[in-house]
């Protein structure tokens, strides 16, 4: 599945706030066309790593390359073209509160593309429907949406420009199990058709099992392991053992074996 080209490569990244070092020489690759599941305990720094890659947090040390260029060192044009090729779903959704759901999804298209209003509306409606939202939410404002709906609209917005990479910060948290499974399915479809690369922070063991080609584990500021779910399940590392083979993990392990 994954060809050898890395679309994201992070080397020796150090990020901290004040006296606290959150990421301590973390290194990670995301390969073209793969879905990378990123796991780690709460507060381990998963969101911080994601925000550092997309250039929202300054780093103290290390290199980050996205499509072979460092977004922090790129000039205006390069940065814009990189930004057009990625979509980001933030942990809290981060929808624009003064735009309706449909306008939120249209927003990146308006900014980057010259499309007819009709096409923009149709595509935005299609994206919303693909993430499981019908026409009744089009005119709703974020404050009027449920938590799960906010997640879905945010995902539709992240996918608005058919990006090459999507960053998803806990996309399935706040979704019901059926919605989460549909979401996994959607990610699979998009990834197969569009050759999407996905960087997905998740705690959802079902998602890890269903869609992730590879899993990376963050602990104590470092990426301590990467590999398929089978590798993770077989690992003897104590943290991995308790994460993947705890009560919740065991059912997945069971499923993998059969």
């Amino acid at each position: 599945m994954s060809s050898n080209a890395a679309v994201i490569s992070v080397r020796d990244l150090v990020v901290g706030f004040g006296g606290v070092t959150v990421l301590d020489h973390a290194s990670l690759d995301v390969f073209d066309g793969e879905v990378l599941g990123f796991v780690g305990g709460s507060g381990a720094g998963k969101s911080v790593l994601m925000r550092a890659i997309i250039g929202l947090l300054p780093r103290r040390h290390g290199t980050i390359e996205v499509f072979g260029t460092d977004p922090a060192l790129a000039d205006e044009d390069q940065r814009r073209s990189i930004e057009q090729r990625w979509g980001v779903l933030f942990q809290q959704g981060a929808l624009f509160s003064s735009l309706t759901a449909l306008q939120n999804v249209q927003f990146p298209m308006r900014e980057y593309l010259k499309l007819s209003p009709r096409l923009m509306e149709e595509i935005a409606a299609a994206k919303l429907e693909m993430v499981g939202l019908g026409p009744d939410v089009h005119e709703k404002f974020p404050a009027e949406l449920s938590g799960g709906m906010v997640k879905r609209v945010a995902l539709a917005r992240a996918l608005a420009l058919d990006p090459d990479i999507v960053f998803l910060d806990e996309p399935t948290s706040g979704l019901d199990p059926i919605g989460a499974a549909e979401f996994d399915q959607l990610i699979r479809t998009l990834q197969r058709t569009l050759g999407l690369s996905v960087f997905m922070v998740t705690h959802d063991l079902d998602s890890l099992h269903a869609v992730c080609d590879r899993i990376a584990v963050l602990s104590e500021g470092k990426v301590i392991a990467t590999g398929s779910i089978e590798t993770m399940l077989a690992s003897e590392h104590p943290w991995l053992k308790s994460y993947f083979q705890g009560n919740r993990g065991r059912q997945i392990a069971h499923r993998v074996q059969h």
Binding site: A125, A126, M130, E139
Partner: peptide, 11 residues
């Protein structure tokens, strides 16, 4: 996927 979307007339 797209065969299924936008079937309801847009309001």
């Amino acid at each position: 996927e797209l065969r299924l979307v936008n079937q309801a007339p847009a309001q």
